[in-house]
């Protein structure tokens, strides 16, 4: 697992209007965009959606981070979808390209293209939220919207602990190697290396469960009373309008689909 910044997620600090927006507005944007990408079926509309996501990523100043996180995956996905759908899609279709015995079919390529645009839109809209929102803000917004604090704890604690545990694994490996553990050699040798590495990782981390549970209980985490927040998450003046616009876009897209135009 790679870790960027201090937050443990892909989050990139910034000063754009997207960064400043309240997390719930951004979540609404992601949900509406993903829903739209599932509602529309025609290629031009899917392309327009994908383009709109690119614009938001650019305006938020996170498009580099977006490409770093997804480029390799998106290129691979495009290639494999083209191959799998282009060459093996069932049903009669015009042939776009003949390479030896393999024929690339138009219907398959079009299907692959709409699939790629749809996935790009979904991943992009999701990453707009992840890249521009600090995980603590996201969790606070989710809790203030009515989710249990336990959900928030689970998400934040997991995000923090996973890199910590990788670090612990690294320390255990160093410690055991300094005691003479071989971590190279034949497959059997390497499998035997698992035992002295895995044990300390388990028992060390299981020991910490009880201490953490007591610490949380002592701080009133499991109380049924209402809790207050140290920080307040601000709404920008333009956000109510943006939310209405997002709702309108979704209704519009559904109407277009029902009419058979999208």
């Amino acid at each position: 697992m790679t870790v960027s910044g201090t937050s443990g997620t892909l989050f990139q600090a910034g000063a754009s209007f997207v960064h400043a927006a309240h997390p719930t507005t951004k979540l609404l944007y992601a949900v509406v965009t993903i829903a739209c990408s599932l509602v529309v079926t025609r290629l031009p509309f899917l392309a327009a959606l994908a383009l709109s996501v690119c614009v938001v990523l650019y305006l938020a100043g996170v498009w580099r981070a977006f490409l770093r996180a997804t480029a390799r995956y998106l290129v691979l996905l495009t290639f494999f979808l083209l191959v799998i759908q282009g060459l093996f899609r069932e049903g009669p279709s015009a042939v776009l390209l003949q390479i030896g015995p393999a024929s690339l079919k138009t219907a398959g390529v079009l299907f692959a293209a709409s699939m790629v645009l749809r996935i790009f839109t979904m991943v992009g809209a999701f990453l707009v939220v992840v890249l521009t929102t600090h995980p603590a803000d996201l969790v606070q917004a989710i809790e203030q919207a009515g989710a249990s604090p336990r959900v928030g704890y689970l998400l934040l604690a997991t995000l923090q602990l996973s890199p910590e545990m990788v670090e612990r694994a690294r320390r255990i490996i160093d410690a055991q190697r300094s005691r003479g553990l071989r971590t190279d050699g034949s497959l059997v040798m390497r499998f035997r290396g698992l035992v002295p590495l895995v044990g300390p990782l388990f028992y060390g981390s299981l020991m910490s469960v009880e201490a953490k549970a007591m610490a949380l209980t002592a701080r009133g985490f499991f109380t049924q009373r209402r809790k207050t927040w140290v920080r307040t998450l601000a709404h920008q003046p333009w956000e109510p309008a943006a939310r209405i616009a997002l709702g309108a876009v979704f209704v519009g897209v559904v109407v277009l689909r029902v009419l058979g135009w999208a």
Binding site: R150, V166, A169, L187, S208
Partner: peptide, 29 residues
């Protein structure tokens, strides 16, 4: 979902991450 169970969950997930790191380090399939 008792306090102990709630605390166990992030640690279980982190154990998954830690063990995966060890298998990558040992170059195991």
């Amino acid at each position: 979902f008792t306090p102990m169970a709630i605390v166990l969950i992030p640690i279980a997930v982190a154990i998954n991450a830690g063990l995966h790191f060890i298998t990558v380090f040992l170059n195991l399939p």
